[in-house]
Design a protein around this nucleic acid. Structure first.
Lengths: 210, 210
DNA sequence: TAGATTGTTAATCGATTAACAATC
DNA sequence: TAGATTGTTAATCGATTAACAATC
């Protein structure tokens, strides 16, 4: 149903479509045309139609797109109809913040465990879960059907733990550490480099200065 | 010195160059060629030279690039030689995590205040700062030379506060809320949509499934 | 049927890569 | 000088936009 090798740039637009369709659904809209959606989202109607057509025709000539159906389909494309079990590695501020962020559960992402190697944190309670030692990660992944690991630790630790994760054959790594992880192709990595993002903002602020 | 209208895609690569050059500097490397850097970074040497040349020639034929000099120059392009004063709006888990993240200070980004509208949080201490009420944002920005606001609150609140920020003529907004903010052109917005990022990871995991 | 809007092909635009002359 | 490597132009590739026939 879906082409192999959808380009990165198309993929990166899908969550935004999904968000807007969710809003439209909440507003009670039943159908929407690419033209109307393009106005709301500030992109061309052409791009919207091209993007959707990578995954097969979701619309109907003369009518447009059924909001509910399109929302569901994009959700499926994004794998949101599947359940995901996560562990968070690194129980610092960011790790705790993500552990406490309930909204991910609505989309099927469940935090099953939190790990750290700092002795003082082991056993601490975060949202009803006891922080475990990083030495136990491998066993935990195997016994608990974990498919995503969230890395919220300093870069040295991240590189190290990454090897363990590769051993466990984890499906995905959501990487908040400021390193580019070196993993085999079968393992999917999505990076969130916060400092990179802040630097981009800084660039934009000064761009038109002189 | 720098072209107006550098394309977004070039800008988004700058922080990564900066990171790698920082590492090289720490390793004590004095010079590096585009070819060598390309191997490390997994991009083409051609792209590296093209990217750098948007900002003028940083290298020397037959020699390559001086690591320290290049590092400094890219830092300047990114505005990291300037001081930035931030406020964090939304004192929840994520806001607190960012407030406590010291590394930003190394790059010249200083958190000067934290705000929330939840009465129970006002006055709470976060890293030596008392959480203030969102009603006081406008005054605080004016009196404290704030140029960046970090939005770590739910989307309804973000849209609302955004109007205040536009009024204050803030330079940049680092937006963690799951909305696309509507601001005039002169105000720079950098979005970090964490759930979008997680969805992309989910997509990749399931992409080659069937 | 007539009008609307998709799906899709073709045209344009921009970004990446290749190639090489300039030059340190 | 000879070798290395940049800066830059030209060629290629891919993504976006425009256009329109297909069709609901």
């Amino acid at each position: 149903m879906q082409d192999k090798n959808i380009s990165q740039v198309v993929i990166s637009r899908l969550p935004r479509y999904f968000r807007y369709l969710g809003d439209l659904k909440d507003e009670g809209m039943e159908r929407i045309s690419s033209g109307e959606l393009s106005k709301r989202m500030n992109v061309t109607a052409s791009q919207i139609r091209q993007d959707f057509n990578h995954f097969g025709g979701f619309g109907q000539q003369g009518y447009g797109y059924n909001v509910n159906y399109l929302y569901e389909e994009i959700g499926k494309i994004l794998g949101l109809d599947k359940r995901h079990n996560l562990i968070i590695i690194g129980a610092g501020n960011l790790g705790q913040a993500l552990a406490n962020y309930m909204n991910f559960e609505k989309r099927g992402f469940f935090v099953k465990g939190i790990f750290d190697r700092k002795e003082s944190l082991i056993g601490t309670d975060i949202r009803g879960m006891k922080v475990m030692h990083t030495d136990d990660i491998e066993e935990f992944i195997k016994n608990n059907n974990i498919d995503i690991a969230v890395l919220t630790l300093p870069k040295q630790g991240a590189t190290e733990i990454c090897k363990t994760l590769v051993n466990c054959d984890i499906s995905g790594i959501w990487n908040f550490a400021h390193v580019d992880l070196d993993v085999p192709d079968r393992i999917n990595v999505e990076n969130v480099h916060l400092s990179d993002s802040l630097m981009k903002l800084s660039f934009k602020i000064h761009e038109n200065e002189n």
